[in-house]
Design a protein around this nucleic acid. Structure first.
Length: 820
RNA sequence: GCGGAAGUGGCGGAAUUGGUAGACGCGCUGGACUUAGGAUCCAGUGGAGCAAUCCGUGGGGGUUCGAGUCCCCCCUUUCGCACCA
């Protein structure tokens, strides 16, 4: 760094140049020595829990996306601290799970060796970024002191009847050789390996999250979360209101043999010309006639073997007739019963009524198999006989036709009336269904917390007593999963062979481990209680610090992690462990960073390594740039060239402090701008609009330097606090240089004078017929008459106005529009 | 197919509620200082035009004194979910 002033004028005092590397190293050391980032959890008067989603410590090291996310949270936390809160900003590692395990397999190392190294690297990188994290409360989900309580959590759910085991068709990834959650299957492919997913039957542990569907949905109305996130959760929970209708069949068994279907359109029952069951439906055998047995069995076998990808990408409907008929309770006509894989056993009752006239899927099915298509709803432009070329699904303006006594009813009233009528005969009841499935937490893998269960021939399924937790994950060499469908732990008899805790007989440990999402579903409860080995979370501390005041993270976790965390919190609330049932009072999703218009990926080789950038530009400039490159909640485009802009800004700030003068009085115009800037930066940070906050400070810096003036001390000093959340090291250095005591973060956010923050002379825009013709300077509280008079004096305006204006629109302090 | 978000200069992006479109930054152009400049500083920078002025926020309509912003119809991009009855 050079400075021409020293060379041009040998008499000028040498000016120290901004050296981020030295400053950052110095302050990171001082912060550590003084415990600047430590929060006294017990004595805090105004607790503020600023949480960010913890990273998975990959071997590649910190991703710039991580840093973007963390910096945004850090700025918010530092700002809250300057606003007088005792801010707790913890961070830890989500180190269990398939990512770590697969990587370990790939490089031929053991995760138990690999993870500590990765964490150490992350730790170094995070510290170089200057986050206000209280590292005394760091946690890792792989620490037995942590997963002991993850296992404890499982036992609590078991105790409440919310954990159960069932044989279920699960998604099996032949590449990862493991079961996947529904959520990990994207369009029939494994989200990680992109391999087509197969179906397998395995004994799995599930959590009854579906019991909580109504509450998970309703509470969304009362929490301060990004609207996009709430919408994603609502869609995921997928409430749909409808009715279950009963159709009598010819199968023996009386009422038992009725088929229940779920529909959201009971109003269309007169148009139900056939029924369809899922191929796995339990009634299929009883309904299959002798002649059809062969084709039905073949079809069931085919759909069973079919992998998900084929099933989900084929648009062509398939199916077979069972040979049986049911009675439509409305028309009392005989209608055929079919089976088809477009009906899913997992949803509703596993059976539907086919209404081809008003459901596109049914229409395709009926067309293919030449089943009757009847119109029972028409809009304003149709009548009962208008032919159907495709399903007519518009229902808001629909009227029922061909529906017996219900002709003329609207869709809405028809729904109610038909269900009421059928309900009298016991053939219908209103029902609400949710798409949300129970949460399968079993993983046939190694790298996770063992599920704390022991199977005993005599006692059955026995939970591991709480006093025996944790069930330690043993170190085994052969942790690679194979396609046997059982966990690698099942190959280690010395580990799984244990005494039954109940009878002392021979027992066998559960050899599956739990889903990583369970680890992360409660970590925010643990942070303030890290160090307490006797409880998962200390009641007093928890009461003081939770729920989380501000949670920031990626929207890729909008459904899974956030939904599971809410569920676990609700369960713990119901169990009496927590006083609240929503863990995150406020949640904001940050955006994602792309680079030069393209997604960052290893294969493209355009990954940003934060280390290099921090080294070249300094952490402060890098942080500021990340926050400046786009709106935080939307993400943005990382462009190497642009970092110089934020660095230049910090250089100028540094230089201003070196050259500022205490002589004379500050410039009133500059001071006015300063107060406006203080207000704007504060408001912008509060709403996470970091890019505009940085822009406002840059703008002020331009004002400060305009015309090569020497800035006055009073004009510069408040800027140190304003910039401190973005550039904490530099702010500390300048704070010290200018005689500040202690840390700038223990000072206060500058206040602004509202009178100064508003201009008293404003530029009034003068329009003629809505087109801007001039701008005139007027007092802020100028009256319409005075403004009009002044405007008409203006040469340009008078050129466009002849005679008396027809109308004048006046927006005080902003605009005058003369309609001529 | 369904749902969400978004289309603004050469580029990243500004514009609380309908009221100055393009803040701020990059880049670019010119200048100053320099042996030099990829450093620093100053000035300029949406398009057309000598100018007055006109045109400009994906396209087409509309409401309004006034529309990037509101309404209707299209187009494009992007991210979720995907036969959920």
């Amino acid at each position: 760094m050079d400075n021409s002033a020293t060379r041009n004028d040998p008499l000028a005092p040498p000016v120290i140049a901004y050296d981020p590397t030295a400053i950052e190293r110095k302050w990171q050391r001082i912060w550590q020595e003084r415990g600047t980032n430590h929060t006294d959890l017990h004595r805090a008067q105004r607790p503020f829990y600023a949480l960010m989603m913890f990273p998975y410590p990959s071997a590649e090291g910190l991703h710039v996306g991580n840093l973007f996310a963390f910096t945004g949270n850090d700025i918010y936390g530092r700002f809250q601290r300057l606003m007088g809160h005792n801010v707790f900003e913890p961070l830890g590692y989500d180190a269990f799970g398939i990512h770590s395990e697969n990587y370990a397999l790939k490089v031929g190392k053991h995760p138990m060796d690999l993870i500590p190294k990765n964490i150490a690297n992350f730790q170094r990188q995070l510290e170089s970024a200057g986050l206000m994290v209280d590292w005394r409360y760091r946690l890792s989900t792989t620490d037995p002191n942590y997963y002991k309580w993850t296992q404890w959590l499982f036992l609590q759910l078991l105790k409440r009847g919310l954990a159960y085991k069932k044989q279920a068709a699960v998604n099996w990834c032949p590449d990862c050789k493991t079961v996947l959650a529904n959520e990990q299957v994207i369009a029939g492919l494994c989200e990680r390996s992109r391999t087509p997913v197969e179906q397998r039957l395995l004994e799995q542990w599930f959590f009854r999250i579906s019991d909580y569907a109504p509450r998970l949905l309703e509470n969304l109305d009362h929490i301060d979360w990004s609207e996009t996130t709430k919408t994603a959760q609502r869609n995921w929970i997928g409430r749909s209101e409808g009715a279950e209708l009963e159709f009598e069949t010819e199968a023996p068994g009386g009422k038992e043999s009725d088929i229940r279907v779920f529909t959201t359109r009971p109003d269309t029952i007169y148009g139900a010309t056939y029924l369809v069951l899922a191929p796995e439906h339990p009634m299929v055998d009883a309904l299959t006639g002798g002649r059809e047995k062969k084709s039905v069995d073949e079809y069931r076998e085919k759909t069973k073997r079919q992998d998900l990808v084929a099933r989900k990408t084929s648009t062509e409907k398939s199916g077979v007739f069972t040979g049986s008929y049911a009675i439509n309770p409305a028309t009392e006509k005989k209608i055929p019963i079919w089976i088809s894989d477009y009906v899913l056993m997992e949803y509703g009752t596993g059976a539907i009524m086919g209404v081809p006239g008003h459901d596109q899927r049914d229409f395709e099915f009926a067309t293919k198999f030449e089943l009757p298509i009847v119109r029972v709803v028409c809009g304003e432009r149709e009548d009962a006989n208008t032919p159907l070329r495709e399903a007519f699904t518009e229902c808001e303006s629909g009227t029922l036709v061909n529906s017996g006594v219900f002709d003329g009813f609207t869709v809405e009233s028809g729904k109610k009336a038909i269900v009421e009528l059928l309900a009298r005969g016991g053939a219908a009841k209103p029902v609400v269904h949710y798409r949300l499935h129970d949460w399968c937490i079993s993983r046939q893998r190694y790298w996770g917390p063992p599920i704390p269960i022991i199977y005993c021939d005599k006692c059955g399924t026995v939970p591991v007593p709480e006093k025996d937790l944790p069930v330690l994950l043993p170190f085994i060499e052969d942790f690679k999963p194979d396609d046997s469908g059982v966990s690698p732990l099942a190959r280690h008899e010395e580990w799984y062979r244990v005494e039954c805790p109940k009878c002392g007989g021979t027992g066998r440990r559960e050899t599956d481990v739990s889903d990583t999402f369970l680890d992360s579903a409660w970590y925010f409860l643990r942070y303030p209680s890290v160090g307490r080995d006797d409880v998962p979370f200390d009641p007093a501390i928890t009461k003081k610090w939770l729920p989380v005041n501000s949670y920031i993270g990626g929207n890729e976790h909008a459904v899974l992690h956030l939904l599971y965390s809410r569920f676990i919190t609700m369960v713990l609330h119901d169990e009496g462990h927590l006083a609240f049932e929503e863990p995150f009072t406020r949640f904001r999703a940050h955006g994602h960073i792309i680079r030069e218009g393209a997604k960052m990926s290893k294969t493209q080789g355009n990954i940003v390594n934060p280390d290099e950038y921090i080294e070249t530009w300094g952490a402060d400039a890098f942080r500021s740039y990340l926050m400046f490159l786009g709106p935080y909640e939307q993400g943005g485009d990382f462009r190497d060239q642009s970092i110089s802009g934020t660095r230049r800004f910090l250089d100028r700030l540094f230089a201003s402090v070196q050259t500022m003068s205490a002589d004379g009085a500050p410039d009133p115009t500059v001071m006015r701008k300063l107060h406006q800037t203080i207000r704007k930066v504060g408001e912008d940070i509060a709403r996470l609009s970091y890019n505009t906050a940085v822009a406002a400070m840059m703008e002020y810096m331009n004002t400060l330097r305009k015309g090569e003036r020497t800035p006055h001390r009073d004009e510069v000093l408040p800027l140190i606090a304003l910039v401190s959340p973005f550039a904490p090291h530099l702010a500390e250095e300048l704070w010290e240089q200018t005689g500040g005591k202690g840390s700038v973060f223990d000072s206060a956010w500058p206040s602004y004078d509202p009178a100064l923050a508003t201009e008293d002379a404003v530029e009034l825009v003068v329009q003629v017929n809505g087109k801007v013709r001039s701008r005139i300077m007027v007092a802020r509280d100028v009256t319409e008459e005075a403004a009009l008079l002044a405007a008409l004096q203006d040469a340009t305006v008078s050129r466009f106005v002849s005679g008396t204006p027809r109308k004048v629109v006046f927006v005080p302090g902003r605009l005058l529009n003369i309609v001529a």
